[in-house]
Nucleic acid binder design. Structure first.
Length: 890
RNA sequence: GGGCGGCUAGCUCAGUGGGAGAGCGCCACAUUGACACUGUGGAGGUCAGAAGUUCAAUCCUUCUGCCGCCCACCA
């Protein structure tokens, strides 16, 4: 047991001084570190690794605070709790940052060369990659820093290579030419999940393609007129009578005078646009599929810089075999080298001049944007590596049908399952250098060798192809390929480590909704395949953070908030955390961040701090930690606050268990401020409370601090340390045990009546305009006589003199407490008149209800009895108010 | 087009099949020692609209409207 160390506390709790000091102490004590311990139940969370380019934002404030709270809670429960941190190399994002840095020095990536570029990248990572960890420390997060991992650590890289090789050997990774999402800014492909749609105003251009026979031909509608140069057909719906006569005939592309066939395909919607659609297989996903079905050629007209090429060319895996299609080249030269959007303007003008542009109709469409660069994605043919997803998705779906993982809130499980059901092959190769280079080599004849390292590749090549002259594929893997292994790669997989044995699967994955497709699905699929189990029992999906007006937070809108620089200096880490959690609702999908909650949370901290000061300043001093007097020595107020404390701890425990962090935060604030400070602390100032109050205040604060510690780690540590306590730090203290907290329901009810009386008194004083200097005489029921001192004390503001009456259980308001000559009679009358009207309407409502035979017959007896009791009460009150009104005279 | 969430006091949000809640803001009052980063009281709402189920609906069902999100090959 340690006694109170510092009797002279400042009036205000100062987070700026206290928080860094406590965090440093926790680190020195190693409280966040755990070793696998089969004797205790595990509680493991793998931290979603932030990008090394990342900065703290409010998303971390919600999602990562939730993880910290859960880990701290389960640690206090005595579980083998560990939060495993790390970082993601964020291939494209990081490379973009590096390219910008180099540009400032007048350097380019290609000029520097791969080796030098990667040296720079690692140096950058060393220098800036840990910044977000500092932010996390400022926020009080306590992951197991000793276990920090990076997706490009040797161990994790080995896991990546093994997974690639195994999937390749199993025939689930293939190389092929497909239409991919090309980001012309970062010069790399993106997976479907990395493409975001954004609505933009544009036009729908209607263009006439005349018949080859000189007829009217057909009018197509398009949002991308610049790609018409590479059209290979016009498609209509098979049952569209308007165009049936044209199917099988040719129409002619304007300007370039190239003839293309009209074909019928189910994918065309007869009621959209003109019902006829141009088919450009090399630049549109739907068209690509139509092209495949009809075995159409796939000429390309836009290059990897998003410029129009002239002439057209035919994509080939080997650049030297890419053949120009120069038949129409002379007529296209005007567009050669133009950016796709400039080309669009020129082509529209030229078509208009030619009379081929039938109509230009304003139109709002969704543009595919790169989530990395915000550039408009260009669908392009390219030779890339893919993962066949269906065989991976099937076991994941089966597991989900058996209930694993469990989603909280449950509805996100349906989103997840729908994603698995509609899964498409995953493009995993990226044309950046920063990342895991594909373990793929080619012979001079383009024979493919996949191997974990170069020596093994050479051995295989010699054996199979009689050569060890190899060149390695320059591409790297999609960042999500390595993060998809996260929950097991950070535990040492493929080695069979103790950590992997005891800590896989994790108990919960906490993440945001938008990551379900990008990440959660892939972790499950890969975890199932390579470790044989779903990597986590629960997936807790936290709400997305928006600003007060419901707009997404973003740098460009200028409404982004960095909690460490924008909130912690103002409210402290505790205030920031509590303020955010108070707004987190389990079933809600968005959180409109309102800073007022942080302000409230900070003031709550000060309030508790002062309750602590009050407790420490008690003249009679404090007993040892968690020592309560025997029940006979406790006052009614003591028994009430202990009962309330127990209820609070119970609520908070259930809330944490169900991930309802907002409910836990509410309950703690409600109890701490309004129940404990406003009523109990005040009550202890009444005469007759001295004998027990020190012990009870100390006991309640100690238990309350522990219950609130997961949410507000610093303040609660400081309170706990200052009061008598057992142990070195609250971080490893035990969760309040309900069995330790006595409960006295009957006494609690009595004190509840005290509160009601006092509130009525205060209300009366205020409503009736009783001046501070004036006193009024009030009466309380005989049953409260023993608590007279408390009522008197709490009612001090009302300047009340207490008398006892024995008239049953009537309320104070009705008794009217002889107000002698001090109250404003007019105000009193007004008040009573209003009160009488209210009671009359309540009586009428209740009478009507009870007169309803159906109600009596069908409602449950409890409800009917309660309604009768209410009616009696209303009638009694009404009679008293009327009596009082009469007594007022004129 | 499909799916999902929301609509409760000026603002941000809890909540419940049976007498509408919190914080902030607003108004009034209170400064003799835990705290002015305070305390006390008050005003303020046809619980989006309509229909249905029910003895009883803000809550359950259906429809409508508006806001938002996700998915999908509407050029």
């Amino acid at each position: 047991m340690t006694t109170a160390a510092r009797p002279d506390l400042p009036k205000t709790y100062d987070p700026a001084e206290i928080e860094p000091r406590l965090y440093a102490r926790w680190l020195a004590m190693g409280v966040f570190h755990e070793e696998p311990d089969p004797a205790r139940p595990p509680f493991i969370i793998s931290m979603p690794p932030p990008n090394i380019t990342g900065r703290a934002h409010l998303g971390h404030g919600s999602t990562y605070t939730a993880m910290d709270v859960l880990t701290r809670y389960h640690r206090m429960l005595g579980e083998n709790a560990d939060w495993l941190p790390g970082q993601d190399h964020a291939a494209i994002a990081t490379e973009a940052v590096l390219v910008r840095e180099l540009a400032k020095e007048g350097l380019s990536r290609d000029g520097l060369g791969r080796e030098k570029f990667l040296e720079r990248a690692w140096a950058w990572r060393e220098q800036y990659g840990g910044e977000i960890n500092e932010a996390f420390k400022v926020l009080g997060f306590g992951p197991d820093w000793e276990r920090e991992r990076f997706t490009m650590d040797p161990g994790l890289s080995a896991a990546v290579i093994k997974v690639f090789c195994d999937l390749y050997d199993d025939g689930l990774i293939y190389r092929g030419t497909r239409l991919v999402n090309w980001d012309p800014v970062t010069q790399s492909t993106l997976s479907d999940a990395e493409v975001e749609d954004e609505e933009r105003d544009t036009s729908l251009w209607h263009i006439r393609y005349r018949g080859e026979d000189g007829g009217e031909g057909v009018v197509i509608a398009t949002t991308r007129p610049e790609t018409y140069l590479a059209d290979v057909a016009v498609a209509v719906h098979p049952s569209d009578a308007r165009y049936a006569h044209l199917v099988g005939k040719n129409v002619v592309l304007p300007i370039v005078d190239r003839a293309i066939p009209v074909i019928a395909d189910e994918a065309v919607l007869a009621d959209f646009g003109t019902g006829a659609v141009k088919v450009t297989p090399a630049h549109d996903q739907t068209d690509y599929e139509i092209g495949q079905r009809h075995d159409l050629p796939m000429p390309t007209v836009i290059d990897f810089d998003a410029r129009v090429t002239a002439p057209l060319w035919r994509y080939d895996e080997k650049p030297e075999r890419r053949a120009p299609i120069d038949a129409q080249a002379p007529r296209m030269t005007a567009y050669a080298g133009l950016d796709r959007f400039d080309a669009r303007k020129r082509i529209v003008e030229d078509l208009r001049a030619l009379g081929a542009l039938v109509q230009e109709q304003p139109y709002r469409t969704k543009l595919p944007l790169s989530s990395r660069s915000r550039a408009v994605i260009e669908p392009l043919l390219s030779l890339q590596w893919f993962v066949t997803m269906k065989p991976l998705a099937e076991p994941a779906l089966e597991a989900f049908r058996r209930g694993s993982p469990r989603f909280v809130p449950e509805r996100f499980g349906r989103t997840y399952a729908a994603g698995l059901e509609n899964i498409r092959d995953w493009n995993i190769s990226r044309q950046v250098w920063w990342g895991h280079q594909l373990p793929v080599w080619y012979t001079a004849n383009d024979d493919v060798v996949v191997a974990p390292d170069e020596n093994e590749a050479k051995r295989i090549a010699r054996e199979r192809y009689g050569t060890d002259e190899l060149r390695r594929d320059p591409d790297t893997l999609d960042t999500w390929f390595s993060s998809g292994l996260w929950p097991f790669s950070i535990l040492g997989w493929p080695e069979r480590t103790t950590e992997l044995e005891h800590w896989y699967p994790n108990q919960v994955m906490v993440t945001a909704r938008e990551i379900i497709f990008l990440w959660v699905m892939r972790m499950v699929m890969l975890g199932l395949r390579f470790v044989g189990r779903v990597p986590f029992d629960d997936v807790f999906v936290t709400p997305l953070v928006f600003d007060l007006h419901g707009r997404k937070m973003s740098k460009s809108l200028g409404n982004g908030i960095d909690p460490t620089t924008d909130l912690v200096p103002k409210y402290g880490a505790d205030g920031t955390r509590l303020g955010i959690l108070r707004q987190m609702r389990l079933e809600s999908q968005e959180l409109r961040f309102d800073e007022r909650f942080c302000d409230e949370a900070k003031r709550f901290g000060t309030k508790l701090w002062n309750a602590l000061r009050y407790t420490l300043a008690l003249p009679e001093g404090l007993p040892g930690a968690n020592v309560l007097p025997r029940a006979e020595s406790l006052t009614v107020a003591d028994k009430w606050i202990l009962t309330e404390l127990r209820a609070c701890v119970e609520t908070v425990t259930h809330a944490y268990d169900g991930y309802a962090l907002g409910v836990a935060a509410d309950a703690l604030l409600q109890f701490g401020w309004y129940t404990f400070c406003d009523w109990y602390v005040e009550a202890t100032k009444a005469p007759g409370q001295e004998a027990s109050r020190g012990a009870v205040l100390s006991f309640v604060l100690n238990a309350f601090a522990r219950a609130m510690h997961p949410i507000a780690p610093f303040l609660t540590e400081e309170i706990w340390q200052t009061l008598p306590h057992d142990g070195a730090t609250i971080v490893t203290a035990s969760w309040p045990d309900l069995a330790e907290i006595p409960s006295f329901p009957e006494d609690a009810a009595t004190f509840h009546t005290v509160i009601e009386k006092v509130e009525q008194l205060r209300n009366a004083r205020s409503e009736w305009g009783i001046q501070p200097k004036d006193w009024m005489r009030v009466e309380i029921p005989a049953s409260l006589e023993p608590e007279r001192g408390v009522v008197e004390s709490l009612a001090t503001l009302a300047r009340a003199q207490i008398a006892t009456y024995d008239g049953g259980d009537g309320t104070l308001r009705d008794r009217i407490l002889a107000v002698r000559g001090v109250a404003d009679t007019a105000k009193l009358r007004e008040r009573y008149t209003r009160e009488a009207a209210r009671l009359e309407s309540e009586v009428a409502r209740s009478e009507k209800k009870l007169a309803n035979e159906a109600f009596i017959a069908k409602a449950s007896p409890d409800v009917v009895a309660a309604e009768r009791a209410k009616l009696d009460e209303y009638r009694r009150e009404l009679a008293r108010v009327r009596e009082a009104l009469g007594a007022l005279g004129d």
